Simulated assay, not measured.
Amino acid sequence: MILIKNVEIYSPKYIGKKDILICGEKITLIEDSIEFNNEKVKVIDGSNKKLVPGFIDQHVHITGGGGEGSFKTRVPEIMLSKLTSTGITTVVGLLGTDGSTRSVQNLVSKAKALKEEGISVYVHTGSYEYPTVTLTDSVRKDIIFIDEVIGCKIALSDHRSSTITNEELQRVASDVRASGMISGKAGILVVHMGDGKRGLSPINEALDNSDIPIRTIRPTHVNRNEKLLFESFDFAKEGGIIDLTCGIYEKLSPRKVINKALSQGVESENITISSDGYGSWSNYDQFGNLVKIGVSSVNALYKEFKAMVLEENMKIEDALTFVTSNVAKALELYPKKGTIKENSDADAILLDENLEINTVIAKGKIMVENKEIIVFGTYE
């Protein structure tokens, strides 16, 4: 058991200075004062600290991305402490361009490994390509029968993606929708958006010519260029959920565009943020030749949150929603995840007065304490 005393709690809404008791993997009690005199209870002094929900990063290449500049550019798998040290207690893994040398089998195996090591992990079947790569040879079966799989991924408006028809896009989205309903999962189609000239039009056309609910399809990387960004605002104003990626361009960083989105009538809950961690970023010339490649970091999520507060003067409770409660609701994990409430999962971060990460708790276990990693992955 863990008892945190005298801590300011953001759920993410600020609820005041309280004590919080964690038993097993759950938050058991939140009260103005909780007293325990038992040596089996670990007591943490939360004075001058803020307790916030653990971050949820819904777009991480946990088995490594890349590979677009030949085999040597394949990014390695992520290790546990890379996630926990940046406050990430729940992660959603997926494949990228390469669905050939990497597989959904590998992805699910890595998810199970990270779960064994102490954090919450979900994945999406699929990759950039169509027909969709799967584990069971069926998108529906992957989502219905594999616990970790909550949706599917595909890519559009990108020279690296398959060129698919509206009917094919509708078919994948329908499969995802139905399998989510059957299995009681989110059942979402995450769509990697590239810089292609068609932008969001394939998604809009697929929705206009079908009965697929708009929230089934989730475009991500929508802040990679201004045209795509403003198209995504229209999409979100219709009730869709858009995902902003950290670290693409400074002027189009999530912290720079969120206020613009809100001023144009986009509902706050329709916006989420993710890191694209351990995926590769790449630049191409006008002929499609690769000129530069690098790797995205999962700490971009924490850096973005901190910058929203310290640089953009956003309220802590507002900034937190984009990396906690909004994401949990979008993935249909709320209030199990994304909040500090009684009976919610004990995923939490203790921040100091400068918003530096002091302690990270995942599923009731301390992973980082006093800025030191105390739980490492198996091969770290």
Rank of each mutant, 00 (worst) to 15 (best):
G247W: 13
N326A: 08
G294D: 06
S325H: 00
E342I: 05
E231S: 08
T339Y: 07
L290E: 13
A236M: 04
L310V: 12
V257M: 08
S268V: 02
S296V: 10
I271R: 05
K337R: 14
L262G: 09
K315C: 09
F233E: 05
L252N: 07
F287N: 09
Y302D: 09
G288D: 11
F322D: 11
E332I: 05
N259M: 08
I258S: 10
V222C: 08
V295F: 10
A307N: 13
R224G: 10
V266L: 11
F287W: 02
A346M: 02
G265N: 12
D352G: 01
F233I: 05
C246Y: 02
M308Y: 08
V327P: 13
S296W: 13
S296R: 14
Y284L: 13
L350K: 06
S296L: 15
S263C: 02
E267T: 00
H221E: 02
L290S: 01
R255A: 04
I248P: 00
L290C: 05
T272A: 09
K341N: 11
I273N: 12
L228S: 09
P219F: 11
F287H: 03
L229P: 01
E226G: 00
V291I: 15
A328H: 05
Q264H: 11
D352I: 05
T321R: 10
V266M: 05
K329T: 04
Y284H: 01
Y302C: 06
N358C: 14
E250S: 09
D318I: 05
N259G: 14
V291G: 01
Y284C: 03
S296F: 15
K341P: 00
L301E: 09
N289K: 08
V323K: 07
D234K: 11
N326W: 03
I258Y: 05
F305N: 13
S344K: 07
S282D: 11
L333V: 00
D345G: 02
L228C: 08
P219S: 14
E238Y: 04
A261N: 09
N354M: 04
V309M: 10
T359L: 13
D234W: 02
Y284Q: 00
P219V: 15
D234A: 11
Q286E: 15
T220S: 13
C246K: 06
D345A: 12
T321W: 05
